[in-house]
Amino acid sequence: MPILEVENLSISFNQYTAGLKRKNIQVISSLHVTLEAGEILAVVGASGSGKSLLAHAILGILPDNALVSGTIKYNGELLTPSTQASLRGKEIALIPQSTNYLDPLMRVGNQVRTSVQTGDATLAQRAVFKRLHLQQTVEKMYPFQLSGGMARRALLSTAIVSDAKVIIADEPTPGLDPVVMKEALNNFREFADNGCAVMLITHDIESALMIADKIAVFYAGTTVELAPVEDFTGNGEALRHPYSKALWRALPQNDFTPIPGSQPHPSDLPTGCLFAPRCTMATSACSEEQPDMRNIRNGMVRCMHAT
């Protein structure tokens, strides 16, 4: 049984426009993703595709004007606001994208120690700082005294010492030098090998390929493909969705071929398949309704033309 299951998740926001008219904007629709204990699932896609919103929905930290439907289960049990609050930071830990999540009024060492659930908190904090190449003097500093890379390592430290069963890492590597980035990625792999489940949200597909077991590709607020990491190779011929193939070929180390057009804004989504306006395989049927996710070649894809 997956440790984390997200089924048919949809998220919209109530916003007020000119003249105080209320408008509902759909930002995530029919999103599916599962996470197994002992595996790393990398979530990739363009900015605005819903990756961070998924993390916030799992943890129950969306803003008050968010409307959420669908189900999120942890160990087979439906997550409710109260269970999310009880699990947050304990069994489900977030490494947030923004370093502003650090408390500006608390010394960094103390912040990391608050995440330690068993054993000596000071020893655990100092051990993880050494592991991530943070000097012991850093524990006495406040967040404003840290560089961007140091702040990210401090956030990473809170997850490492938490003994969480699920770690959601939202863009954890920007600003890290290559040595520390490799250490951080190795930590995630070690978590998974010890039975933890890791969701790595990233733009850096190359880094994800180093440690991930599966990759979920997001586009315009939904999952378009879930594939084993081994499928991201060659010219992308093993991939199933046209967007996944185009995204892979657009990388500098591959063809470096740009994808025509741009991802649609949530307020102006096309009918039917969300990628159809940019897809060379699109037919008139693609604009009628959004395809369901289906199993193909040991993966899942949301495309009626995939084989």
Rank of each mutant, 00 (worst) to 15 (best):
L247E: 06
R126V: 02
M281F: 12
K130H: 15
C273F: 04
E230V: 04
L146Q: 07
L209H: 03
Y142L: 12
H133G: 07
Q290C: 07
P258Y: 07
Q26A: 09
Y142V: 00
M300C: 08
L132R: 01
E289T: 00
P178I: 07
T271G: 14
Q97N: 10
S82W: 13
V180R: 03
A192P: 10
A246M: 01
A212H: 05
D120W: 07
S262W: 13
L156I: 14
V301R: 00
L155H: 06
I201H: 04
A93I: 07
G236W: 01
R153N: 10
G195C: 04
D213G: 07
Q135K: 15
D268Y: 06
T71C: 09
L78T: 14
Q26C: 11
L200Q: 02
I25Y: 06
S262E: 15
N75H: 13
V27Y: 01
D103C: 11
L155N: 03
T280N: 11
A46D: 15
T283Y: 04
L155A: 05
P81S: 09
V68D: 08
L155G: 05
I215Q: 07
P104W: 09
L59D: 10
N187S: 08
A93Q: 11
S12E: 13
I25G: 00
A151L: 09
T271D: 15
P81A: 03
Y243R: 00
G38H: 04
K21S: 12
F218Y: 13
T233G: 03
E36N: 10
R297E: 14
P81T: 02
G149E: 08
F188E: 09
A216Y: 05
L134Q: 08
L105V: 15
N8W: 07
P266H: 01
I58E: 10
T271P: 04
N187D: 14
G76K: 05
P172G: 01
L123N: 12
R294H: 14
D177N: 11
S147L: 04
R113P: 02
G261F: 11
L4I: 05
K130Q: 15
Q84T: 06
I215H: 06
S49E: 05
P63F: 10
V33A: 13
L123H: 09
G119S: 08
Q117S: 12
G60M: 10
P242Y: 03
K165H: 13
T223Y: 08
P81D: 13
G89M: 08
D163Y: 02
Y16K: 10
E36D: 12
S82V: 12
H241P: 07
S115E: 02
N75D: 14
R88M: 14
L251A: 03
N298D: 15
T71M: 12
E206I: 05
L62R: 05
K140H: 14
A66H: 06
A46I: 02
P96K: 00
I3D: 01
K21P: 02
S98A: 12
N194F: 09
V112L: 01
M293F: 09
I201N: 03
T71R: 13
L105R: 11
P260F: 03
N187E: 15
A197N: 02
S49G: 04
L176F: 11
E289F: 07
K130V: 01
L239Q: 05
Y16D: 12
S52P: 06
L31W: 06
I167W: 03
K182V: 07
R107P: 06
K165Y: 12
E183T: 10
C273Y: 02
I215K: 02
I205A: 08
L226M: 13
N295P: 03
F218I: 01
P178Q: 12
